[in-house]
Structures are given as structure tokens and as C-alpha cells.
Nucleic acid binder design. Structure first.
Length: 763
RNA sequence: GGGCGCUUAGCUCAGCUGGUUAGAGCGUCUCGUUUACACCGAGAAGGUCUGGGGUUCGAGUCCCUAAGCGCCCACCA
């Protein structure tokens, strides 16, 4: 009793209990399997979850805490139930985000840019940062009580994952799914990189909308600074105003002298918009680029990667966009070409979702994954699901959800998933940043150099080249390889240059469920059965994550996995909601309403925090959290603690009447035995629904925990017992949730006791 | 423009395939208790389930409709 304080103090037990468990090795399924009679109950069923890897940019927030709590509940339940259970921890290198953080830090501390350091030194800095950050995150995950198998820890940018990335890249390249091409992309002039469609967000902005006289027509634009070389006027084919002009060409007085303009009819011009006529700028607008491809118009770059004008702007070359806009208008005004200006034009400005910088659509050379090209379906099983032997990435990824091979909870997200998948465009996977998986493509310039050399010598000697050099002979083919190549296979040159770009961070996280389980090596970790992790645990059972990254991540995992393995990455997707503050606002540092899970864990105990995050929530719905709620669960946990204290005070060696609990189980010195599972549970991917444990202040009523089967039975017999019995069922999750106090056993006891008391009262 | 969700006790939310008097926590009120627990106990009050219409023996639950709130996607020369 002396070591049993009258109220629960998490600080006294949390860390030591976690350490005890970790050292016991029971988080590792290999240990569990190998531990003989103690875990004889381990069955053939496996249960596997890979942790959505937190970004190495920062510390854990409540979203992470929610994820850890829910997954820990599922995992602990299955482990106790006797399933071969693994939960794989890891972190994500979060390419752009991390590079940004380190760049900022570098500037603050040393007033240097990454270019001052150079690629190698800069990456070293990033690695240092990442290492420190990872340590913090690991400590925090332990503090949250997550029963992760640390022996299988992974990082999206470590060596095994790099091998997976390169292997997948090569597979796709060989299947001609990966190609390099000029395309218009969203470009962030600050991050100096492309942005995927879903990395662009929109912000409403009031700006000026200019009506300019362009020859005989008036065109409307919000971006006059891009219009130097506009030569095509697009009008709607049914627009009577311009009908007679279609197909004609004429000279037009414009920003820099005259240009020859042509009028083309296309339905993309909206008659109601502006004047109904527009000129197009293919290099800086998505729709214009599409039109240019359709009709074969010239494409001129006006703005460069840094957001300043190119030589195409004549004397305005080198000018930043905003300044150029005014200048252009000034000039047009001088020429009398400004018809009028709408000062109150409101539109959605596209901005970078990370840094809020306005996005410049630019044409550049990038690597893409073709999502529409048909490839062989890799397994019979998937073939059956898709319904054909060849399919596109898109089709496969949609089919597995449509067919039910992957179940999304809550179901309503199916629709949004399909909508997104059906409208998916080719995925741009190259990023112009340094931190990340370098694209595994090498170029050999030897032949090219030799030829140039030869030519210049000929020129020196005053000779003309007799032979025309064929395009295909200039340079060797790019080398795509898993291992860094020693030399060029076609010419033997050992001076190869690797593609400077890195891969979109989602490329590596798309492989996460299987790259963490040994693919492509299929390491043989488990000698008892001879099964590789991949065979043993893939497809994973559940992917549990926030609905906000359904598209960013979940969809891409499905895409990648169905292609690479011909298998689904997971059977169930369980989506949790966002944690909001009391007023329903998003938690953010700037608003000052963010609750730090670690601080409240210190204050109220981890159990209280976990319960507050988990009880009363439903999948896919946001959760409003207040410190008051956490406090409520602190009280609840304390209640359980005192239940245990009371039971143990009944004397050493005593058994609690009506239960198989003795005092040694109440305050265990050893890890919770995985052989004693709760018999039912409710929070699960199998049975979604609100977690409805109703902790009461009332002594026992309403707690209904553990295996008080008699209680359940009695309730069932009572009239109108259906509903109540259900509630009792739901309550079974608690033993999984409470991981620290280990009052699980005492809760069992209390229930039995409560039952007895209840019986007495009834009599 | 397309799609999704929410509206149930003062507050935060459960209520699955329609079935007897609609549930929980917090809060409120009354009474009690200080050797398991004041981070306490016993009990009580509190709801025309957003409005309207329909299907049904029966609707919080299904259908239609209106309103308010919220979210996602697309796009805007």
C-alpha cells in the first residue's frame, strides 16, 4: 500500500512503465512469437499497421497524438487478442518543408543561403537538423505511450527506402510510365520548385482588371506583364461580334512595337467574360498552354524561375513581375491602348500552400508519371478486381476501392476519392530542391563533348563537317539505375552527371507500406516461420490517418502499391478528423489556441489526454477539444486508480470476490501479458461508430468495463436491454486505451464488484 | 460551377440495418461524505430530435423540400 498514493500521479509511473514494456520486447512481434508458453495464444492472423510518418520538420501536435492513440488502441487490442501484430514507426523527410526550415535557420543564424554553402554542405546541415528532430519526435511518441516496434523503425530517406524508391522508379521508367517532358507547371518562385496541383491553394484577392486595346478588339487581362508576345486572339465561335474576324491576321500596335495577330475561334473563350475576346500567353497560363498545344502556337517564356521578366520583355528584362505590371500599363497608357481599368476585380489568386507566395505557371522540363497509360496488371487477384489484364494506374487505384478490396471509413469519402482519382492528371514528380531522393537518372555527355570537340577542331582547320550529325547520336541515352552506375554502358565514359532534381516527397511515402516491410529485398527477419515481413504483414490491415491527407498520401499509396505489387497497400482506411479548439477553430500557433499534447500530458497524464482525444469521436468528424475535457478524463483515470487501490487494500493474496483477479495483477511489476485480452472491443475498423464509454463520477455505474459478463447478461435480460447492452459492448475499448495506469485489472474487479452491489440493491 | 457533411438536453456529442417511456459526459440544482477516491458519492431537473411535406401499423432514423452553418474539389483571360 505504501507505494500506492491516494491519487494517481502519472509522473511516478508513466516513463518507467513504458521502459518496462519496451525492454520486454513485447512491441516486437518476433519477441512475442519467440517467447514460448507465455504467448502460446498467438494465432495465424496477422495485424499490421504502419504509422503515418510524422514530418521531421517539427514536434508532435494533437493530430499526431490522436493518430497515436487510435492506432495504439487497435494495435494493443490485436496484440492482446493473440494476433501476430506489428506497428511500424517512422518519420518522413518532407522534402520541401524541411529544406525550408533549414534554409530559414541558416539565414537567421549565419546570414547564408543554401547556394552559399553548396549542395553537399547544405545537405549535411539538413541531416544534422533531421537527426535532432527525429530524436525529439521519438521521445514524444514514447511519451504518448505508443507501443511501436522500434526495431523496425524507418525513415523515408534512409538507405533501404532509397533502394525502394530507385527500384520503383526504374520499374516505372522501364514500363514507360515515367517520362520527361515540357509542361506547364505551378512554380513557386520562393521555394524554387514546382508544386503539385494539390499543393496550390487559392486566396481571394482584389486586383485591377485591365481592358486593353489590341488592334480592333478589346481584351481583358489581370496580368498585362505577361502579354509582350501575345499573338493570338481567341473568341468564341458563336460570338457574333467577332464572327467576321475569325481566321484573319493583322498587325497590331503593342507593348514593344507591332506584332502580327491572328484571330482563332475556340469554345474555351467565354462570351460573357470581359470583352469576350482574349489573347493567350501559353507559357504562363494552364488554359492557354492547352490551347497552344491544341493549335500549335508558339510558346515564349516571359517570366523566369525567379519571377522576373526574360529577354522577351525587351528593355524590361530583369524586372520583377509586380513592377513590370505597372510599367507595361504606363507604356500602354502612353500609347493610348488602355481602354479602361476595373479597380474592383475579385479573383482567386493561386498561392503556394507552404509559403503563401503567388504561384507562377511556367513551362519547364519535369519528370512525370503517366497515370493514363496501360500497363500489365501484376497479379491475378488484382486482374480480377480491375477486370482486365492491362490497366492504367488510375483505373487500378479506383478499382480496388470500388470493388471493396479497400474499405474507406467513413464511407462517404469513397465519393471524393473517386472524383479525385477520375480527374487525376499526370503526376509531376520532380522537384528543384536539394533535399530528397535524387532522381536516379544519369546523363553521359561524352559523345556530345567529343563531337563538339571534333567540330571545333574542324573549324580551326577551316574544314566543314562532311557528315550531318544525327540527333540520336548526340549524347548517350540517359541511364536509369538502381545502383549508381560506374560508367556509361554505351560509351564507357565514367564521367556521368546525375539529374540535379529530387523526387516529390510523396513518391517515397507512396511506397511506405511495403518499403518499410523489406521490399524490395524482402528481408528474412523472422526465422521461426521463414516468412519475410512483406509476406507476413502486407497488405497491412489498417491505415489510420487524418482525412486531410486522403489525396496527398492515401491515394498515392494506393496508386503506387497496386502498380508495384499488384496488391492493395491496406485493407481498411480509417480516417480521423481534425482536432479543433473549443470554438471549432483550427488550432494554430499564430492563433495561440494550440494545445501542446506534451504539456497537457505532463499536467494531466497521458491516459487523460488519450482518452480525451478518443472518447466521443467518430471517424471523419472533427473533434472539439478543451483542456476541460482532458481534466475530466484525468478525474476518470484517477477514479480507476483508486478502484485499484481499494481492491488491493483488501489484504495481501486476497482474491476479489466474483473475479479471477488477485492483488498481484493490480499493480503489476511486469508488462501486461498479451495473453489476457479483453474479450470484446468497439473501436475498430470493423465496426465504426462513436466510442462511447461513459465514465461516470458515479462510483461504478456507467463504467461497465472489462469482462463483467454477468453484468452484461443480466442487463440483456432486463426489458429494453438492447440498447444498454450495446453500450456495454462499446465499453470494452477501455482496457486498451489505458496503457499506463495498468488499472485494467482493477477495472475488471470493480465491475464484478459493482455487479454484486447492483444485485444486492435490486433485491 | 460540382460534390460532401452537419443541425438531437444550457454546452460537447452518441443514437448502426426504422420498433416499446430518446442516451452519455460536462454544467446546473438537492442531499450526503472527509480512512479507496473532493481529481468524491447518491439523486434530480432539463429535449414538440432546425422548419415543412411524404412513405409506414410505427420515423431522430427512409424519401422530398426549405433555411442556417461548415468542409472539399474545380475554375476564374
Amino acid at each position: 500500500m505504501s507505494d500506492f498514493p491516494s491519487s494517481y500521479d502519472p509522473k511516478l509511473v508513466e516513463d518507467s512503465i513504458y521502459n518496462m514494456w519496451e525492454e520486454s520486447g513485447l512491441f516486437n512481434p518476433d519477441t512475442v512469437k519467440g517467447s514460448g508458453d507465455r504467448v502460446q495464444g498467438i494465432g495465424p492472423t496477422s495485424f499490421s499497421v504502419v504509422l503515418p510518418p510524422p514530418n521531421v520538420t517539427g514536434t508532435l501536435h494533437l493530430g499526431h497524438a490522436t493518430m497515436l492513440a487510435i492506432e495504439d488502441i487497435m494495435v494493443r487490442y490485436h496484440r492482446m487478442k493473440g494476433d501476430d501484430t506489428v506497428w511500424v514507426p517512422g518519420t518522413d523527410h518532407a522534402a520541401i518543408a524541411t529544406q525550408n526550415v533549414v534554409e530559414k535557420k541558416l539565414w537567421k543564424e549565419e546570414k547564408k543561403t543554401r547556394h552559399d554553402l553548396g549542395r553537399e554542405k547544405f545537405l549535411k546541415k539538413v541531416d544534422e537538423f533531421v537527426k535532432a528532430s527525429k530524436d525529439t519526435i521519438h521521445r514524444q511518441m514514447r511519451k504518448m505511450g505508443a507501443s511501436l516496434d522500434w526495431s523496425r523503425e524507418a525513415y523515408t530517406l534512409d538507405a533501404p527506402r532509397e533502394r525502394a524508391v530507385r527500384t520503383a522508379f526504374k520499374m516505372m521508367y522501364d514500363d514507360e510510365l515515367i517520362y520527361r517532358g515540357h509542361r506547364i507547371v505551378n512554380w513557386c518562385t520562393r521555394c524554387q520548385s514546382t508544386l503539385a496541383d494539390d499543393e496550390v491553394s487559392y486566396k481571394e484577392e482584389k486586383t485591377k482588371f485591365y481592358y486593353l486595346k489590341y488592334g480592333p478588339v478589346v481584351i481583358g487581362t489581370a496580368r498585362p506583364e505577361t502579354k509582350f508576345l501575345d499573338k493570338v486572339i481567341i473568341v468564341h465561335p458563336k460570338d457574333k461580334r467577332y464572327e467576321s474576324m475569325v481566321g484573319t491576321s493583322f498587325d497590331v500596335e503593342w507593348i514593344d512595337g507591332t506584332v502580327k495577330a491572328t484571330v482563332v475561334a475556340d469554345e474555351s473563350a467565354e462570351m460573357e467574360m470581359g470583352s469576350g475576346a482574349m489573347t493567350i500567353t501559353p507559357a504562363h497560363s494552364f488554359t492557354d498552354f492547352a490551347l497552344a498545344q491544341k493549335y500549335g502556337f508558339e510558346i515564349h517564356q516571359i517570366i523566369n524561375e525567379k519571377g522576373v521578366l526574360t529577354d522577351a520583355a525587351g528593355d524590361m528584362a530583369g524586372m520583377p513581375v509586380a513592377q513590370a505590371r505597372e510599367k507595361v500599363i504606363e507604356r500602354l497608357q502612353a500609347k493610348g491602348l488602355v481602354d479602361h481599368i476595373d479597380e474592383n476585380y475579385v479573383h482567386n489568386l493561386s498561392v503556394c500552400y507552404r509559403c503563401d507566395t503567388p504561384v507562377e505557371p511556367l513551362v519547364s522540363q519535369q519528370w512525370f508519371i503517366n497515370v493514363n497509360k496501360n500497363v500489365e496488371v501484376r497479379s491475378r487477384k488484382l486482374e480480377k478486381i480491375v477486370g482486365k489484364k492491362q490497366a492504367s494506374l488510375k483505373e487500378m487505384a479506383a478499382a480496388v476501392v470500388r470493388n471493396g478490396a479497400i474499405k474507406i471509413i467513413p464511407k462517404r469519402f469513397d465519393k471524393t476519392y473517386f472524383h479525385w482519382m477520375d480527374n487525376l492528371r499526370d503526376w509531376c514528380i520532380s522537384r528543384q530542391i536539394w533535399f530528397g531522393h535524387r532522381i536516379p537518372v544519369w546523363y553521359c555527355h561524352a559523345k556530345e563533348a567529343r563531337i563538339q570537340n571534333l567540330e571545333s577542331r574542324r573549324k580551326q582547320k577551316g574544314l566543314n563537317s562532311k557528315f550531318k550529325i544525327l540527333d540520336s547520336e548526340i549524347g548517350c541515352k540517359p541511364i536509369v539505375s538502381i545502383d549508381t552506375p560506374d560508367g556509361c554502358p554505351s560509351c564507357g565514359n565514367s564521367q556521368l552527371e546525375q539529374d540535379p532534381d529530387t523526387l516529390d516527397t510523396w513518391f517515397s511515402s507512396g511506397l511506405w507500406t511495403f518499403s518499410t516491410l523489406g521490399w524490395p529485398q524482402s528481408v528474412n527477419r523472422e526465422q521461426a516461420t521463414g516468412n519475410s515481413d512483406l509476406k507476413r504483414f502486407h497488405p497491412t490491415s489498417v491505415l489510420e490517418t487524418g482525412y486531410d491527407i486522403l489525396f496527398f498520401w492515401v491515394a498515392r499509396m494506393i496508386l503506387m502499391t497496386t502498380y508495384v505489387l499488384g496488391e492493395v497497400p491496406f485493407e481498411t482506411v480509417y480516417l480521423h478528423g481534425l482536432v479543433r479548439d473549443e470554438q471549432g477553430r483550427k488550432m494554430s500557433k499564430s492563433l495561440g489556441n494550440a494545445i501542446d499534447p506534451l504539456i497537457v500530458s505532463e499536467k494531466y497524464g497521458t491516459d487523460a489526454v488519450r482518452l480525451a482525444l478518443v472518447v466521443g469521436t467518430t471517424p471523419g468528424n472533427d473533434l472539439k477539444l478543451s483542456e476541460k475535457k482532458i481534466e475530466g478524463y484525468r478525474n476518470f483515470v484517477n477514479k480507476l486508480w483508486n478502484v485499484a487501490r481499494y481492491v488491493s487494500s483488501q489484504g495481501p493474496g486476497s482474491r476479489v470476490q466474483g473475479s479471477d483477479i488477485d492483488d498481484s495483477t493490480l499493480y503489476p511489476r511486469r508488462p501486461l501479458d498479451p495473453l489476457s485480452p479483453p474479450e470484446r472491443y468497439s473501436i475498430s475498423h470493423e465496426r465504426p461508430g462513436r466510442i462511447s464509454v461513459e465514465p461516470g463520477r458515479r462510483n461504478l455505474k456507467g463504467i461497465y468495463l472489462g469482462r463483467s459478463r454477468r453484468l452484461v447478461r443480466r442487463r440483456l435480460k432486463a426489458p429494453s436491454a438492447k440498447r444498454k447492452a450495446k453500450r456495454i459492448d462499446n465499453a470494452y475499448l477501455i482496457p486498451n486505451t489505458l496503457y499506463h495506469t495498468q488499472t485494467v485489472a482493477s477495472v475488471y474487479a470493480v465491475c464484478d464488484r459493482g455487479d454484486l452491489q447492483q444485485d444486492k440493491r435490486d433485491k
